[in-house]
Amino acid sequence: MDALISYLVNVISLGGTYALLALGLAVVFSVLGLINFAHGELMTLTGYVLLAGILTGQQFWVAVLIAVLACGLAAVLMEFAAFRPVRNASGATLLMTSFAVSMLLQVLFQNGISARGQAIPVPPWLTTSISIGNSQISKVQVMSITIGILALIALKIFFDRSYWGWAIRAAADDFEVVGLMGIKASRLISFAFLLSGLLAGIAGVLWVVQRGSVDPLMGFKPVLAAFIVAVIGGLGSLTGAVAGGFILSAIEIALQTWLPAGVMPYRDAITYTVVVIILSFFPNGIFGKRDQEKV
């Protein structure tokens, strides 16, 4: 029973972060057809802004808020400076641009801040744990789960009830039709980047608080995981991004929990093998749109 509780807590905690990350990617993909690999660097930026906020004496939650807003703003600026000039170029050009932005930001972080990781001084109360039955759960995980669930609920309300939420959902189905309905493409894309940046900011806070440090290359692993999550769920599918997050998390945690010690070094390889098996049954992702062929 304790093992099951621990498993569920770990899956929800990690899955929520993955879902937020993948949603950030999916929102931009919906409107621009771009997988933004610089999304991870937005997370890294959040970590550095959070650190700066804490070191300049801001309250922890104030620093968190500033970091998330800064990330949203940075995403809008990224779109304006890097992606807008090549918006009508091919998918390959957009992809290369996102890699270039990612590399540029990494080098800027390394040379402008430090090549070494920087510790994030979180409040002492976050370093303890609470008991559920015989299981102990760290407060960082509790925070991660709470924020993750609240963010997902807020997103659900946003997508269901707001004008821009409808616009992004519609764009995910057919971007051209959204344009024909009078919504300006530039504003929609900027808004999608803002939302993507805010999601990267929330995920970034959860990531660095759990990890305890921020470093220039921190964004690579999470963006890779988010990409896989988005593919599992179906590229461009917002529901799929959430589902994919929890599926990947469930696979990773299950393997980490129950794989025999001798096989453990192959955990990542097994995880990705399972992902390939899932994709062999759902080539467009679980919630992806099927390719339509006209006869």
Partner: peptide, 28 residues
């Protein structure tokens, strides 16, 4: 870094007080 900070935070956060030995990579 960045794995050691994550590990030790999770370890101490779960109330495990066993001694921890590390290597030159954490001298920072």
């Amino acid at each position: 870094e960045p794995d050691f900070p994550t590990f030790i935070k999770a370890l101490r956060g779960a109330g495990i007080t066993a001694a921890v030995l590390g290597t030159d990579g954490i001298d920072s």
